[in-house]
Design a binder for these strands. Structure first.
Lengths: 234, 234
DNA sequence: CGCAAGCAAGAGCAGTGCTCTCATTTCAGT
DNA sequence: ACTGAAATGAGAGCACTGCTCTTGCTTGCG
């Protein structure tokens, strides 16, 4: 795009990145609520008002971090999925669980950023349009896995209750017109349930309840995969 | 317990309740992050420092609200469950879904309190021991439904993967020694997944994705019930 | 070269959680 | 019934926060 930007623009990009880095550091250390513009500025050796040249408000800074985090977890899942496709080309269930495990691993490694994405929404703050793209990456990856399995060998799902048929058709038309409506509904359920499992673990709800969480999650993710019709080692 | 407490103790209880009420109002209006001790005091016509005679810190006030909220959602679920037991005595699946729907309804009616319980943990704040009892009410209700079904007609579950067997036995011994280990694991999964569905809805993740959320949730809750071996109308 | 735009600094405003001191009220033991 | 201790409320104050506004300095384009 801009082949050689002026020194000023470069400095601006560098400072913006430095602000986000420092903010991410504070986020990881203390959580979103303790992320303070003044502290970020202090750590960067500037004065708080200067920060407003780069981010018009604290919420805008948070938004930038949210977008980066969605991209990070999406990239982690996509990478793990691609590796699984390479390692076990036809095993769609293994590919599914690989993506799920990558999401979980990223969440456990970045709990505060995960909380920003899938925890309580920041009050008075509604996610701007820019976040929906990155936010959909993981969901689209799950849809893609199910689509590959469906194209390769077809999936068998139990019939839907009658009341859900219109919603299922609408949902399928919206997100995956090539997939059967029952599969679209199953995917939406599995999507939410996957993050339920991850959130419970990251937010400590499994404390003193589930101990061997690796094995527990692996089994649960595989069950979710079967729920959307995936089968092992075809 | 205390048959007739002095006027002072009564006043203390009343003021404590008034503080919690006003705090709950602000919580519902603006969310946890904007809950301000000073604003609560202002609204109650007292000075902020006086509040510290009743709650030693803002976090302690939050803890009190959290315990109340756990009790409220637990009571809502228990009441819906009891009604279902009365209306359809043998239909354990209907009882299960009734409890799930009650949790969802409470969450949608009190989104900010729900976020306090199942959203991002408040930073720097770890839930004290007093919360674990109320927090377990919904989980215990789900366990109880599964136990009733198991005692009445037995439940059939797929076998566990080998790696999960030790964890399953430990988990069953901990929370429900009378239930088969595979059922205990399935219950823990269903528990987390149920709140995944509710959280996605309350936190807006289903925005522009799932539209007919009543039907969607009802179907998902029923699937969760089948996952723990419940069967309709025996 | 000049001048507009970009930028940092500082002061300041309104708000926050929390602590401390100082009166006053209430209650209990003698 | 009286007194001393405990509980309570008021107020000032500290160290923060996000954010705005004004004031100059620097940069780089036309």
């Amino acid at each position: 795009m801009t082949p050689v930007q002026g020194a000023r623009a470069r400095a601006r990009a560098e400072i913006t990145a430095a602000i986000k880095d420092e903010a991410r550091r504070q986020l990881a250390a203390e959580g979103a609520a303790k992320l303070s513009l003044r502290a970020v500025a202090r750590e960067l050796g500037m004065v708080s008002s200067a920060l407003y040249r780069y981010f018009p408000s604290r919420d805008e800074l948070l938004t930038a971090l949210i977008i980066d985090a969605y991209d990070a977890v999406g990239a982690a899942a996509e990478q793990a999925h691609a590796a699984a496709v390479h390692a076990a080309p036809g095993d769609h269930l293994a590919q599914w669980t690989a993506a799920c495990r990558a999401v979980r691993a990223w969440a456990l490694a970045h709990p505060h950023e995960y909380a920003l994405l899938y925890g309580s929404p920041v009050p008075g703050y509604t996610a701007p349009r820019d976040t929906v793209g990155p936010a959909a990456r993981v969901a689209l990856l799950l849809v893609g896995t199910a689509r590959a399995a469906h194209e390769a060998e077809g999936v068998a799902l139990p019939p839907l209750p009658d009341v859900l048929v219109p919603e299922a058709e609408r949902l399928a038309a919206d997100v995956a017109p090539d997939l059967p409506p029952a599969l679209a509904v199953a995917l939406a359920s599995a999507w939410a349930q996957l993050f339920g499992l991850v959130s419970f673990e990251v937010f400590g709800q499994f404390h003193r309840v589930v101990e061997d969480r690796d094995a527990f999650f692996a089994a649960a993710a595989e069950r979710l995969g079967r729920e959307v019709g995936l089968l092992p080692r075809p």
